[in-house]
Design a binder for these strands. Structure first.
Length: 679
RNA sequence: GCACCCGUAGCUCAGUUGGAUAGAGUACCUGACUACGAAUCAGGGGGUCGCAUGUUCGAAUCAUGCCGGGUGCACCA
């Protein structure tokens, strides 16, 4: 039995008791964890609500305390419950049988959830324009998305992870303009340059710098200046060539985009982030997904042609919006008067495909094989030989799009548009997994050597901008973190080989970065701060990791037979009342309650995972993991496990450590953080 | 102008579907290492939860109105 199941059982008892004793039907019974362990393990504030309901039903006035007294007796008979107290104005506080539950928890083996029969969920994240290196803002997207994927899998869901590649958009076109018109290079010359680039300055860094030069080029060299229309024409020519396909410019662009994708995938791989499919914009275009979506939208009457008015010649989607009390209609243009489709239109087509409602499919090829056998696929336009084995892509029941909050308006329109075309799936099938941006504090800008205007200096934070080259590149930050971690590892573990030191420093760096990006809730703007991001102390990934590493080192130093003796002892709790009594003593009193609280906290992991899935808020799990690590650090400091002489007490301490090791390692794994041998 | 988000300790942030005395980290001050690893632990000071009214047994949390900050509202792509 898990803690969640026990709580469920008690809730049900309360519900039945309320019905039988007072004739009141409760919709749901809320339970909460008391603020202090001395108050109990589980609290029901149900009496207040009941007092109200009873009065409504019978007119009889009962005070919450006396109601609580009557319900109390129903819970006392439950075998896992040792006693029940009424506290405050009418809280029903339940105290568990600690010894009995310790035996149960210690014996519970966490098993992998069965994923096969669940409907598939789709998560799209990363989706960086493939024209430059990833910066820290992009990494927030990827880490949030990847962690959410891990949460869903931990909760037993089937998940498909997609990374959308906009290889025909303006941003790629801009870099292509840079290569063609600033550097005057053809494809072979670009390849030649690429071949000379090193790991310290890879292709995506090269493009990063080129992209900012193009931004200046459009403005004739002055950052705040107006764009020169003659030069923008060059971009439009490239864009046109990309849409057409089958020409030298498109070929050049494909090389540039693909190389950037490879670089970005390498960056993400450093952080343990992977995908199942790269969905490419060019294939959506060439396989005519939009045309199909257009037919569907016309057929279902989702869009209408405007013969006159300010949108004359356009196909629009009527879009109702509520502004205060009045309601008015505004139209969203899907097809322009010149016949071209807007981004919203393309997004609706792609979203329909993700939900399996478009009636068209891509062709596929293998993009990358990972060491451990994982295969990354990419879409393609060209047909493949029949009989090629591959997974089935698309057709999810729920689609999560990890996109920053600035896109919330367009995302809402896409969700509505899709729901209008396919009413049976509804708007809830499309979820905008929204998050706020990572911005730079004015101080961080100065550290980067960026000059700020007085106006910018007065702002709370400054938005990162790929176009301006303003941002902290992901690889730079990871490098800095690894260097910092390596110094610490060398200090503490001089006996390790260089490879082991580097590998450990890498794990620490990943922990630091991932936790830093996960500790903030999604709708908090992160004002990036170097000192905080590079820290390994306090509420950080390495802190949590360190606690888990110590659980391991305890077991490394414990003799096998000592651990075996503990296991045997704990397994006998259920059937040996004298032993149960001794274990209860260890778990009682101030010190014992401290230990017990740690055990209770550790058993809430399942609940936190479910809550995290439902709220789509990975920060919940990050905060929980930290509090578990903190509680264990205190336990570790307060109790000597290796030298404990009392057999029962030692058994309990070992069992608790074992439970924490499992739970903490699992929680960290879902956050994408590994636990090294030492650190 | 309209929509969405934010306002909680000096700073950066948590705060379950409304619940018991509002919590962490950091900074500052003090103490604990010939170690089951100090990337740690313990203690201290620090709060009109932006303001006001309302809803109720109970509000940081819900409602309304203000104040302050951010973002988004194109036939751009």
């Amino acid at each position: 039995m898990t803690l969640t199941e026990l709580q469920q059982k008690l809730r049900e008892k309360i519900r039945v008791a309320a019905r039988d004793t007072f004739g009141v039907e409760l919709q749901q019974v809320n339970a909460e964890t008391p603020p202090r362990a001395e108050l109990g393990d589980l609290a029901f504030p149900v009496s207040f609500e009941l007092a109200k309901l009873i009065k409504q039903a019978t007119g009889e006035k009962q005070n919450p305390r006396s109601i609580a007294e009557k319900l109390k007796t129903q819970l006392e008979h439950v075998e896992e419950v040792s006693r029940v107290e009424i506290a405050g104005a009418g809280y029903i506080n339940v105290f568990y049988d600690r010894a009995k539950l310790l035996g149960i928890f210690a014996g519970t083996v966490t098993q992998d959830k069965e994923q096969l029969d669940r409907p598939k969920k789709m998560v799209e994240h990363t989706s960086i324009n493939p024209n430059k290196a990833a910066h820290i803002g992009h990494v927030r997207n990827s880490v949030l998305g990847d962690t959410f994927v891990r949460v869903l899998k931990a909760a037993g869901d089937r998940v498909e992870v997609q990374n959308y590649i906009d290889n025909t958009g303006v941003q790629v076109a801009d870099v292509v303009v840079g290569f063609l018109h600033l550097e005057k290079k053809n494809l072979d010359e670009i390849k030649a340059v690429d071949a000379t680039l090193t790991k310290d300055y890879p292709f995506d860094y090269y493009c990063w710098d080129l992209y900012t030069k193009v931004g200046l080029f459009y403005r004739d060299g002055s950052p705040g200046g107006d764009v020169n229309p003659e030069k923008v024409k060059l971009r439009n020519e490239v864009l046109h060539a990309l849409e057409e396909g089958g020409n030298t410019i498109a070929e050049l662009a494909d090389y540039v985009a693909t190389r950037n994708v490879e670089c970005i995938l390498d960056t993400m791989e450093r952080l343990g982030i992977r995908y199942d499919l790269l969905a490419r914009e060019s294939d959506i275009l060439h396989l005519h997904f939009w045309e199909r979506a257009f037919e569907l939208m016309k057929k279902t009457g989702v869009i209408r042609y405007e013969p006159e008015g300010r949108h004359a010649g356009c196909w629009v989607m009527p879009f109702e919006s509520h502004t205060g009390t009045e309601e008015h209609e505004s139209d969203k243009i899907i097809v322009r008067s010149n016949g071209t489709v807007t981004y919203t239109g393309k997004d609706i087509a792609y979203q329909l495909w993700k939900l399996g409602k478009l009636g068209l499919d891509f062709h596929y090829r293998v993009f990358r094989n990972y060491d451990d056998g994982h295969v990354l696929w990419a879409t393609q336009t060209e047909t493949v030989a029949s009989g090629t084995e591959r997974p089935h892509f698309g057709g999810g029941v729920t689609v999560y799009n990890v996109i920053d909050s600035r896109q919330s308006y367009p995302q809402e329109i896409v969700a509505r548009g899709v729901a209008a075309v396919v009413p049976e799936i509804g708007e809830d099938a499309s979820v905008h997994f929204s998050y706020e941006m990572v911005a730079l504090s004015p101080a961080a800008c100065e550290e980067l050597g960026i000059e700020l205007s007085d106006e910018d200096r007065a702002r709370p934070y400054i938005e990162m901008s790929g176009r301006k080259g303003l941002g902290v590149k992901a690889d730079d930050l990871i490098n800095q973190l690894e260097a910092g971690a390596l110094t610490e590892v060398e200090k503490r573990n001089p006996e390790l080989s260089d490879n082991d030191k580097k590998a450990t420093a890498h794990e620490v760096a990943v922990a630091a970065l991932r936790y830093f990006l996960l500790k903030f809730t999604r709708n908090t703007v992160i004002a990036f701060d170097f000192k905080e991001a590079l820290s390994f102390e306090g509420e950080t990934g390495p802190y949590c990791q360190y606690a888990a590493v110590r659980t391991n080192s305890i077991f490394r130093k414990l003799a096998d037979e000592t651990v075996a003796a503990s296991d045997t002892l704990i397994s006998q709790i259920a059937g040996d009342s004298a032993l149960r009594e001794r274990v209860s003593e260890v778990l009682s009193g101030e010190g014992g309650t401290e230990i017990w609280s740690l055990v209770m906290l550790s058993q809430q992991l399942d609940e936190v995972i479910v809550q995290c899935r439902n709220s789509a808020e990975p920060a919940n799990l990050a905060k929980y993991t930290f509090s578990l690590a903190r509680a264990f650090s205190r336990f570790y400091h307060d109790h000597r496990i290796l030298t404990e002489q009392d057999e029962v007490r030692r058994g309990v301490l070992i069992a608790v450590t074992k439970i924490i090791r499992t739970q903490l390692t699992t929680a960290l794994g879902i956050l994408g953080i590994n636990v090294p041998e030492q650190m």
